[in-house]
Nucleic acid binder design. Structure first.
Lengths: 224, 224
DNA sequence: CAACTCTCAACTGTTGACAGTTGACACGTG
DNA sequence: CACGTGTCAACTGTCAACAGTTGAGAGTTG
């Protein structure tokens, strides 16, 4: 382990297990715990200043999110995703998000959609003015779409998948410069939603995510 | 190939937690543990002849499957699903399965699909000959479709959703007589898949699952 | 008599110790 | 020298006991 691990305060009001989940998830996603690394229960519990019980519970919960892989009698590992698994995860994401887009397109109340349209217009203006290659609202767009679908089961599943994809992509942390393309595609999807064309919205979003997958795969093959 | 996994008698070599998960899942799905019921750690662990540690792990794992609801400092409950949640779950199922159908329709290797066609033909013949109102292959059809999609992440997500739907429908255990309609719709979906028409396959499957949802909802409102 | 407070039993959260398993290293054998 | 074997440290799985929280009911007060 990248053992620096300050015996973090871990202070708050939730249970130790809850807080451990949060701390470990953060460490896994930001690379403090590298893919392939083994998570030693004794070391980590001592580093967190708790006993093995709550830590084990945290590890099991992370395993159910797919951020940790448990091997009986061997322990917990941070999974290392290959191109095949990244593709599987993207296909799953496509399944979830395209259906969310379909649900939103068939929604009666359009206020949420209108807000999203405005947000994307603002982002477009910002991107045109200053050459900021960053497109911080990418995750926002997908997150908002899920939220508008108003299906908590769907949202939770999508969140789980997104976390795993983040982990799979974590090695290539350098956000690509697909900002403009992504924004353009987002606006196209949104236009179809506004028009109430569920099929077209789903089709465009599927296309967009396939582009994103291609991008992610190319970055995966070319490690820094 | 050490673990060619002979399905051990479940009392054999898995950990206590593993076995507890299996036992409890069974009890929840077959109604031994009714929705709304509270799961007392002490009582259950004594009934299973183990200590609270492994049982707690089992409960957390079931919670991650959605078959148990954990309330901090209050304990574990078997969730009681209302019409709204059942609808959410079905929408999630639709998202997953329609995408699976799409993937299968775009598959090159058609041998698996051909097998499924034959299986449905057999089922149809059987259903015509004897007036057996049961259509045992309903779950088989959906399960096979998922398997053919060859995406383990997708399959696992679908399995989790199916388990929750089973729980939500468990009160109305009497399988409805939608056998013929279901089979007809299955064959229509499959025909589209054979034709390689992903859009149409997805559309028909979405329709089929919406019918199934309507049926489930009507049974939910009218308790025996 | 309603509402509020206090007390307590039951239960979950947590801990530290014990038991069984695994993988690796050293050793002996062909 | 390759290979099987024995041994062992490290680690996970499990247990029983301790600590903190919750909800309910007895008791009290206006």
């Amino acid at each position: 382990m990248s053992s620096a691990s300050v015996p973090a305060p871990l202070g708050g009001e939730a249970t130790y297990a809850d807080r451990s989940v949060a701390v470990l998830r953060e460490m896994i996603l930001d690379g403090s715990l590298a893919p392939g690394e083994r998570l030693n229960e004794v070391h980590i519990s001592q580093a967190l200043g708790i006993s093995r019980g709550p830590l084990r519970e945290a590890l099991r919960r992370l395993a159910s999110e797919g951020l940790v892989r448990l091997v009986p009698h061997r322990g917990a590992f941070v999974p290392a995703f290959g191109p095949g698994q990244l593709t599987e995860l993207y296909e799953l994401r496509i399944a979830l998000e395209t259906h969310a887009a379909r649900l939103v397109a068939e929604l009666d109340d359009r206020t949420g959609v209108d807000d999203l349209v405005r947000a994307l217009d603002d982002a477009a203006a910002l991107l045109d003015r200053q050459d900021s290659s960053a497109y911080p609202t990418d995750q926002d767009f997908h997150g908002t779409l899920l939220r508008l679908a108003a299906n908590s089961a769907l949202s939770e599943a999508a969140a789980s998948v997104s976390a795993r994809i983040s982990l799979a992509r974590s090695r290539s942390a350098s956000q690509p410069v697909r900002a403009r393309e992504a924004l353009t595609e987002h606006r196209a999807v949104l236009a179809a939603i506004v028009a109430g064309d569920a099929d077209e919205a789903a089709r465009l979003l599927r296309l967009h995510l396939h582009h994103s997958l291609e991008n992610a795969l190319s970055l995966l093959d070319a490690p820094a």
